[in-house]
Write a protein that binds this DNA or RNA. Structure first.
Length: 773
DNA sequence: GTCCTAAATTTTTTT
DNA sequence: AATTTAGGAC
């Protein structure tokens, strides 16, 4: 921006305005201030990295409230991550005080979706206490459906189907809207049908998956104009953070809501769109002006974060992308250090070198809190962890293996879920035989069969079956005990504090004991995790509140850390953060850009990878070190890699190549006279036009994959089509039972029959297990 | 039904 | 290399 700052703006009016402006506006630059004060009508704020985006968002919110344009409850503010939502809440709280509490509609797309769906559950075929499946539940469910269809799971992995379904949901496609060609892409045309089955099953389970939180909210609006109109009227102002990451479903949802007051403000940066694989459409931001006619667009281009060299390197890199709106970031800081580029012999050496750098920085007075290592893929983290442990360098892994995804936590949660809502079949199935209590696959299958035949939940079916002799004695006893325990725990929920009940459940179920007996070296840490789980429940009023929270926030809040630590995280997790010193290791072809991104999305994939690189560099305030290794251990084998093409694309004037790295000698950067020529001349194994050989490979794979075996063989399933709905049996009827053989009905009690079997004697069985003889 | 051993598969990024 | 899955013995 070449204009003078607003404070010295021309005219008396401007000065008067400045003088009377509320204090929170004074600290803003002119563009930021415009973004805050342009309240009415659609507004797109293109906020480059480090240009004070969050500040603008929060100030804008405070401004709306201060101007009494709307009540807190009339503002819809959506973010993508819980972290962002939390941060925004805190910062607004700092500006407007207790009023934040009234901001009920500030949250992630998903959490707002849940809130709306719970209110109007019956309109989309759910009950308001529906449960939310995570990826693991989703996968297990899909596996069951795939098996029921008799499809070979090896050939058509459930993961793949899950990916398809996710993709459709992200694009706002219900099963009937899936394009025929795409539905056929999975399991010889069964994809769309499986999607339909899956959705039907979810409804029966009274459950939704992550994608549904958006898709079903969207459907709610599309099919219920009155509901939509209500929300349109309610939300006087709408704010959307990270708009470049919205997918089609979210976009449609926003657009419907914005038809009301039309005061929608979207903030984003097309250069930081890194979630294309999750369905994000950069296009949404690119065509904002078309979608919202008369929209105002404001660019924030003053960078307050990084030094010119860092900014220059990042800008030069991202300039290689074609599909972008384009912007020029400026900074008035002093030049600072150039971005360092360093090569290493292998990944271990890279880790050692970075470890030394960090120690040196630490001695020079840098706080470890200001140091971050940003990796492309999480497997890279290990080398650093190993190294830092031997160095005694404190570190923290951000967003690593998630707390709530650990098996022991999920098991414990399943217990709690069944206690709270017994009909949660997936949770029930998960723990029915954990710890081992003698209820094996066969017994579970039987319970399943009854549940299916009678159209009830597994829990109800289990209650029925224990009154019979269908199950082996051991299993029957175990199941009856388990059911009695759940009944008992349920009553305790009302009388005892929820953390206490949780402890009782884990204890009495034998779950804790199972881990105490376990001789696995990791067992103690699992027990520790269970304790942590109970501890974290303390922050919630009720068990329900706790379970709702973790369904959406898959992470546990890191609290009360005293020690300073260096951060290790993925580039994706780093978005929105900043550090004085940033290390970007692993810039090698195949890893970064990742081969799979190239294979699956070709040029679009490459450009997304480049944006990821851009995000990485722009996290740095003062120092940025990029490195690559010639050799890296991938599985068990060593693989040689070439430096990333991104290294080449960094503008020479902002980069320092450090050839002094210890055993770097073997790696000849630029031929014999590497200081003479252009630094990376001999590195260029790729043409400037990106051809992606992997893409062809992927196609070839696809081709032979689907062509090989002609058709999936169909396993004749024993479909239990019982006479559930038909007339019940009567006393004296002759019946046949798979296991006990022929017999005569002696007594009828609902769906439970007492039968005198010719060979096996008197037994009680469920009607769904016998047929008329 | 459970436990033990062998084999296969895995690693991109996440609400 | 590590973790999950399948198969086989008990």
């Amino acid at each position: 921006m070449t204009n003078a700052p607003a404070q010295s703006g021309s005219g008396i009016a401007a000065r008067a305005a400045a003088a009377s402006a509320p204090p929170y506006l004074r600290a803003l630059n002119p563009e930021q201030r415009a973004a805050v004060e342009t309240l009415d009508g659609p507004l797109l704020v293109l906020a480059g990295a480090g240009t004070g985006k969050t500040r603008v968002l929060t100030t804008r919110l405070a401004h709306i409230l201060a101007q009494r344009k709307a009540w807190p409850g009339e503002i819809l503010a959506v973010t993508f991550t819980n972290k962002a939502a939390r941060e925004m809440k805190e910062r607004i709280g700092g500006l407007i005080g207790g009023m934040v509490e009234g901001m009920t509609w500030l949250g992630t797309f998903h959490s707002i979706g849940v809130k709306m769906l719970r209110r109007h559950a019956e309109l989309v075929g759910l009950k308001s206490d529906f449960s939310i499946l995570d990826t693991d539940d989703q996968l297990r469910l899909l596996k069951q459906l795939i098996q029921a269809e008799g499809i070979d799971e090896k050939r058509w992995p459930a993961r793949q189907l899950a990916a398809h379904i996710d993709g459709w949901k992200n694009r706002g496609l219900t099963p009937d809207k899936v394009p025929a060609g795409e539905g056929a892409a999975y399991a010889n045309g069964k994809g769309a049908q499986l999607y339909r089955d899956y959705q039907a099953r979810l409804k029966v389970l009274n459950a939704v998956d992550f994608g549904d939180l958006l898709l079903e909210s969207l459907r709610l609006f599309q099919e219920n104009p009155d509901v939509l109109a209500g929300y349109q009227k309610k939300f006087r102002y709408m704010l959307v953070d990270e708009y470049q990451d919205t997918n089609v479903a979210q976009y449609l949802w926003l657009r419907l809501l914005a038809q009301g007051h039309r005061n929608i403000c979207c903030v984003g940066d097309d250069d930081q769109s890194i979630y294309g694989w999750r369905g994000a459409e950069v296009d949404n931001i690119l065509r904002f002006e078309k979608d919202f006619p008369g929209a105002c667009v404001i660019r924030l281009e003053s960078n307050y974060r990084s030094t010119p060299h860092i900014l220059g390197a990042a800008s030069g890199l991202i300039a290689h992308n074609e599909g972008r709106l384009g912007k020029t970031l400026r900074t008035d800081q002093n030049a600072g250090e150039k971005v360092r580029v360093r090569g290493h012999w292998d990944g271990d050496e890279e880790a050692s070198a970075i470890g030394e750098d960090i120690e040196q920085a630490q001695r020079a007075g840098t706080s470890l809190e200001e140091v971050a290592i940003l990796v492309r893929a999480s497997f890279q983290m290990r080398a650093f962890e190993d190294r830092f442990i031997t160095l005694g360098l404190p570190y923290r892994v951000v967003g690593g293996p998630r707390f709530y995804e650990r098996a022991e936590i999920r098991d414990a949660l399943a217990y709690l879920k069944v206690t709270m809502s017994p009909d949660n079949d997936l949770a029930f199935e998960r723990i029915i035989n954990v710890p081992k209590r003698g209820i094996g696959d066969n017994s579970v299958q039987k319970i399943h069969a009854i549940a299916r035949a009678t159209g009830t939940s597994l829990h109800r079916a289990a209650l029925d079956i224990v009154q019979t002799e269908e199950l082996p004695n051991k299993a029957r006893k175990a199941l009856a005990d388990l059911l009695a325990s759940f009944a008992r725990w349920r009553t305790q929920v009302d009388t005892l504090p929820h953390t206490e009940v949780a402890e009782i459940i884990l204890d009495e179920s034998g779950y804790t004991e199972m881990h105490q007996q376990d001789k696995d070296p990791k067992a103690p840490s699992r027990l520790e995790n269970l304790k942590e789980l109970v501890r974290s429940m303390n922050e919630f009023e009720t068990m329900e509140g706790f379970l709702e929270h973790i369904a959406l926030v898959m992470d546990v809040e890191q609290s009360g850390e005293q020690e300073e630590k260096a951060s290790i995280m993925t580039l994706h997790a780093a978005k929105g953060l900043e550090f004085d010193t940033v290390f970007l290791p692993g810039w090698e072809e195949g890893l970064f850009p990742h081969q799979r991104a190239l294979d699956e999305s070709g040029k679009a994939g490459l450009e997304e990878e480049r944006r990821l690189a851009y995000v990485g560099i722009t996290r740095a305030r003062k120092a940025c070190t990029i490195s690559f290794a010639q050799n890296r251990r991938v599985h068990a084998m060593w693989q040689t890699a070439l430096p990333s093409r991104f290294v080449d694309e960094l503008p020479a004037s902002h980069v320092d190549v450090d050839a002094m790295s210890s055993s770097y000698g073997g790696y000849n950067l630029g031929g014999a006279d590497r200081f003479g020529g252009s630094r990376f001349d001999d590195f260029k194994p790729f043409n400037s036009g990106y051809n992606t050989p992997g893409w062809k490979r992927a196609q070839a794979r696809h081709a032979d994959g689907s062509a090989l075996r002609s058709s999936p063989h169909i396993i004749e399933g024993t479909l239990t089509t019982s006479d559930a709905g038909a007339t019940s049996y009567a006393r004296g009827d002759r019946v046949f039972h798979q296991k006990f053989g022929p017999g005569t009905v002696t007594h009828v009690d609902g769906n439970k029959l007492s039968i005198s079997f010719d060979k096996a004697g008197d037994k009680r069985v469920l009607d769904s297990f016998v047929s008329r003889a």
